[in-house]
Design a protein around this nucleic acid. Structure first.
Length: 296
DNA sequence: AATGGAGGCAACCGCATAGTT
DNA sequence: GAACTATGCGGTTGCCTCCAT
C-alpha cells in the first residue's frame, strides 16, 4: 500500500518554532479552526509540515493548555491511569484536562517512571515491571495476547466505540452514582473535568474522538445516566464514543477507587474487541485475591 | 569561570487506523 | 474491496538548561 509522505520536506522549516510562526499558526486556527492540517501550512503561509503544525498547536499553542508543574493529585492520577492503561498517553491525557499526551509522556519518562522503578522493592519487582517500558510494550501492543494479572495493564485500542447498548428492558432504580463521582461532577461540571471536561473546554481533545462528538451527548457523561448503561442483550444502540466513558471519576476526587475505575471500564465495554476480557472475567478479576494487590 | 554530565522538554519520525474515493 | 488520504498516537531524538565539580 503506497503511502505518500505526509508532506514534502523540501524547503520546510524544522526544529524549534519561532514566535512569529506561533503567532501565524494561532491566528490561522483562531480564524479557521482546527483540522485540514495538511493544507494548513500552505494556507497559513507557514513553511512547516502539517503534522508539525498540528503538534505545535496541540502541545503548546492551544489556549486550554495548562502549563506548570504537575500537581500531586495529577501525579497520582497519572500513576493510577498508567497502571490501568499502560503507555496510552493520549487516553491518560484525556483524563487530565489541560495536559497533553506529550507532556504526560515526558513527565512519566523523566519523573514517574524513575520513581516507580526506585520504589520497586525486590519482592514487588515483578509487579512493578508494568512501569518498565519493555514490560508494558507487549500489553500496549494491540495484537497482544490476553491480559494477565501479572501485567495488570488493560490492552485497549484508542479506537472509537460507535455503538453501545442501553437497556430498555429494566431500567434500573435511580441509584446514586458512587460517592466519589457524585456531587462535584454533576453539580459543578467545570470543577469536574474528568467527567465533563469536554464541555468545560470543548477544544480539548478527548481521546480520539472529534471535538464535536463530545458536545452532542453531554447527557451521556452525566452519571445520572450511569445506571442506564448496561451491557445487556436486547439493548438499544446509541451512538457514543468510548473514550468519554472512560471518564472515571472526579478529577480532584482521587478517592475514587481503582475497582470503580475498572468497573467503569468493564461496564462501558471500552476494551478492544480483540481483548478477550469480558464482564465475567472482569468480575472474576475484581473478586480475585490478586486484584487488591494492585492498589497502593 | 569553564566544562562536562544529567535531566527535561519540544519536536520529529514512523506506524496505525478511520475515512474517502 | 482496493487504493489512497488525513489524522492520531507512541517512541525516540536532539537541544537547552541546570548543576556539580
Amino acid at each position: 500500500m503506497g503511502r505518500s509522505p505526509c508532506c514534502s520536506k523540501e524547503g520546510l522549516n524544522r526544529g524549534a518554532w519561532t514566535a512569529l510562526e506561533d503567532k501565524i499558526l494561532t491566528a490561522y486556527i483562531k480564524a479557521h479552526g482546527e483540522g485540514k492540517w495538511r493544507n494548513l501550512p500552505k494556507r497559513a503561509g507557514l513553511k512547516r509540515c502539517g503534522k508539525s503544525c498540528r503538534l505545535r498547536w496541540l502541545n503548546y499553542l492551544r489556549p486550554d493548555i495548562k502549563r506548570g508543574n504537575i500537581s500531586n493529585d495529577e501525579e497520582e492520577l497519572i500513576v493510577r491511569l498508567h497502571k490501568l492503561l499502560g503507555n496510552r498517553w493520549s487516553l491518560i491525557a484525556g483524563r487530565l484536562p489541560g495536559r497533553t499526551d506529550n507532556e504526560i509522556k515526558n513527565y512519566w519518562n523523566t519523573t514517574l517512571g524513575k520513581k516507580a522503578n526506585a520504589q520497586a522493592s525486590p519482592q514487588s519487582k515483578q509487579n512493578s515491571q508494568s512501569f518498565n517500558k519493555r514490560a508494558i510494550e507487549p500489553m500496549t501492543n494491540t495484537q497482544s495476547s490476553k491480559p494477565t494479572l501479572a501485567t495488570q495493564v488493560i490492552p485497549t485500542k484508542a479506537t472509537r466505540c460507535t455503538k453501545v447498548f442501553l437497556s430498555l428492558q429494566s431500567p434500573p432504580p435511580p441509584t446514586p452514582p458512587p460517592k466519589a463521582l457524585s456531587s462535584a461532577a454533576i453539580d459543578d461540571p467545570p470543577q469536574a473535568p474528568l467527567l465533563n471536561h469536554q464541555q468545560a473546554s470543548p477544544n480539548l481533545h478527548c481521546g480520539t474522538e472529534e471535538p464535536q462528538a463530545c458536545d452532542d451527548d453531554s447527557d451521556f457523561l452525566n452519571f445520572g445516566h450511569w445506571n442506564e448503561f448496561q451491557p445487556s442483550d436486547g439493548g438499544t444502540l446509541i451512538d457514543n464514543d468510548c473514550d468519554k466513558n472512560l471518564s472515571i471519576g472526579s478529577y480532584h476526587s482521587l478517592a475514587l477507587s481503582d475497582d470503580l475505575m475498572f468497573k467503569d471500564w468493564a461496564l462501558n465495554r471500552c476494551l478492544d474487541d480483540n481483548s478477550t476480557l469480558d464482564l465475567e472475567s472482569l468480575a472474576h478479576l475484581l473478586d480475585s485475591e490478586e486484584w487488591p494487590e494492585m492498589r497502593h
